[in-house]
């Protein structure tokens, strides 16, 4: 596209405005990472906007070892990986059934999932809490994982069904004529073909699970089964007065998702746009 209709002055102005927004967006995060290398004493006595004069790594050691963040980190990984794998698999399975096998009940079932996309989890928190307690899953990994999977399914089923509707029926019919059952067709042909939507779904689900707080906070007691966000919530209360360690606990929580974002930023934005536009 040529730019004849845009003058130089306008262009400079646009660059300026966009740069201001970009800097505003990342500055607080940059600031946080910098301050995590100061001791509390240094943070309180020096300019809050300054770079650390000496780079202090003691906060990281403290938070990771004594603060228990190594446990929270591995819990976060466990929750995220299991949730992602199961949401992707179950959504693909249901999506295939809804898009390609089809029964009279399909519109009803599919509709139920679509309705779930706009539902807020906060509004079902109390019954979920009571149910998890009633079946004896309070303060267990399963008590967190099952709700996570259930909450990831509406978007997953919606995206997968949509994607599979685009696969040509002729392909499946050819396989049927060769005598392949639906399960085999799904496993051998359709599931591999759905890799693009599976990647998108995996990324959305990973981000959502990695950042989830309220359910985790409610369903677990103590530190053993908590993941990073729930730990940060508690940590902020007890360490609120030690800024150096507080900022470090936040930085440790941020760094993995920042790296993830740097690698997958294009897929993340694509996934968010795909998931939210139709609702």
């Amino acid at each position: 596209m040529d730019n004849r209709s845009v003058s130089i002055v306008t262009k400079v102005f646009i660059y300026l405005v966009m740069s201001v927004f970009a800097v505003l967006s990342i500055y607080p995060i940059f600031w946080l990472l910098l301050q995590s290398f100061k001791t509390n004493q240094v943070y309180l006595t020096t300019n809050k906007l300054s770079f650390p004069a000496e780079w202090f790594f003691g906060n990281y050691e403290f938070v990771w070892v004594r603060g228990g963040f190594s446990t929270f980190f591995s819990n976060s990984v466990i929750y995220a990986v299991i949730t992602v794998v199961l949401v992707v698999l179950l959504s693909n399975m249901a999506g295939f059934a809804f898009a390609k096998i089809r029964y009279k009940i399909t519109p009803l079932l599919h509709g139920l999932f679509v309705v779930g996309i706009l539902l807020t989890i906060q509004s079902i928190l109390i019954p979920l809490f009571l149910m998890v307690n009633a079946v004896g899953l309070y303060n267990t990994r399963l008590g967190v994982l099952i709700p996570y999977i259930g909450l990831g399914l509406p978007m997953g089923v919606y995206l997968c069904t949509d994607f599979m509707k685009g696969i040509h029926d002729e392909l499946l019919e050819a396989a049927r004529i060769d005598g392949a059952g639906f399960l085999k067709i799904f496993a051998r042909i359709v599931f591999p073909m759905c890799a693009p939507v599976s990647v998108t779904l995996a990324i959305i689900t990973f981000t959502a699970t990695w950042n989830e707080f309220i359910l985790m906070n409610l369903m677990t007691a103590g530190d053993k089964y908590k993941a990073i966000p729930a730990a940060v919530g508690r940590f902020a209360g007890t360490l609120g007065s030690d800024y150096g360690k507080l900022f470090t606990s936040l930085s440790i929580s941020l760094i993995p998702i920042l790296i993830f974002y740097l690698i997958f930023r294009n897929q993340i934005t694509k996934g968010v746009a795909a998931g939210s536009v139709k609702g």
């Binding site: 399975m93 059934a97 029964y103 079902i124 009571l130 099952i146």
Partner: peptide
């Protein structure tokens, strides 16, 4: 075979969804 496949593929997601999202909504 068609019916069985449909159930095997759709039911796990449907059951978890009903238990975790749909039922609690009514329950609430």
């Amino acid at each position: 075979e068609k019916r069985l496949s449909y159930m095997v593929l759709a039911l796990p997601a449907v059951i978890i969804y009903l238990a975790v999202v749909a039922f609690p909504t009514i329950f609430s």
